[in-house]
Design a protein around this nucleic acid. Structure first.
Length: 289
DNA sequence: CTCACATCCTGGATGC
DNA sequence: TGCATCCAGGATGTGA
């Protein structure tokens, strides 16, 4: 569920706490999340300073002074809570407050030394689909998580030419192609549905038949739904955090996702739900062709 | 190479 | 009420 916009929102929320902070202590409450923690995980983190908080696709990246980067994936239900607000911006203040302890699902505790004092950040993940890894910062792009990853959608790398090239010859439905992280990074089930709805392209259409103007429309739609969701994250996160305190994902009004039976906002026809490669797809059979 | 599908995980919703 | 089953879904591995 945390797709690119949610991960970007988490990055922006964590950056003021983590950047420049020294990792005083790490506590892992179990030996693994989805995968085991890497060798000497705690030792490799403790004492390091976080240089920058970045993101690639759906991955959160904490570059460390040690020369390694902490790679974090939120899976389905991964979220962070931070126990105090290190920044003076009142608009952001509500993002941070002490969440009630959740012993069953609080899996990693970060104790950070910051200019504002010690701050505790907690990684909570009910379904434990998330994971953490460490890799050398200088060879991060070549690491297993990122080697085959497609262009970052909100960067200059995501061109019409690159998108077209990624779709050539692919017989799979365009919906499945959008979920393929080698085509474009960071799109998940929700924003794939939303982008296709906006571009008025059927999720069932063969990927190879999305070319030229159609592909250009879809590429633009991907960029638009992602950037609008990031903007929405900035404003809705406050309400979200006020209710349960976590930096994780946020509610957003979608045009297609999870709206089966409701009228299409563009043409009024009832939206449909189908299953493609085991995932729900929501779309308008009338205006998406 | 491309593609479909099962797998991991847990809690909320639904069915009987 | 209680119990079983389904469903959400990102990344990965397997087999066709």
């Amino acid at each position: 569920m945390p797709e690119l916009p949610e991960v970007e929102t988490v990055r922006r929320g964590l950056a003021p706490v983590f950047e420049g902070a020294r990792v005083r202590r790490i506590e892992t409450r179990r030996p693994d999340l989805r995968f085991p923690f890497p060798e000497a995980f705690v030792n490799r983190l403790e004492g390091a300073t976080v240089v920058t908080m970045g993101r690639r696709g759906k991955y959160l990246l904490a570059a460390l002074s040690s020369g390694e980067t902490l790679i974090m994936h939120l899976g389905m239900t991964g979220r962070f809570t931070v126990d105090s607000n290190p920044i003076s911006d009142a608009r952001l203040a509500a993002f941070y407050f002490a969440a009630p302890p959740d012993p069953r699902h609080d899996h990693v505790i970060f104790e950070l030394e910051t200019p504002s004092g010690m701050i505790r950040a907690t990684y909570n993940d009910v379904r434990r689909f998330g994971f953490m890894d460490l890799a050398s910062t200088s060879s991060l792009a070549a690491s297993a998580h990122f080697a085959g990853m497609g262009p970052e959608p909100l960067s200059d790398d995501f061109t019409d030419a690159a998108f077209n090239a990624a779709l050539i010859g692919r017989r799979t439905p365009i919906k499945a192609a959008l979920l393929d992280q080698s085509v474009v990074a960071g799109v998940g089930n929700i924003y794939a549905c939303e982008a296709l709805w906006r571009a008025r392209i059927s999720p069932r259409r063969e990927a190879a038949s999305v070319a030229g103007k159609r592909a250009a429309r879809l590429r633009l739609a991907v960029c638009e739904v992602l950037s609008e969701a990031i903007e929405a994250g900035g404003s809705t996160l406050r309400d979200f955090a006020a209710s349960d305190g976590a930096l994780g994902y946020f509610q957003h009004r979608f045009n297609a996702y999870d709206r089966a039976g409701e009228p299409c906002a563009a043409c009024g026809a009832p939206l449909k739900r189908i299953v493609q490669s085991g995932r729900s797809t929501f779309y308008c059979g009338t205006c998406q062709r």
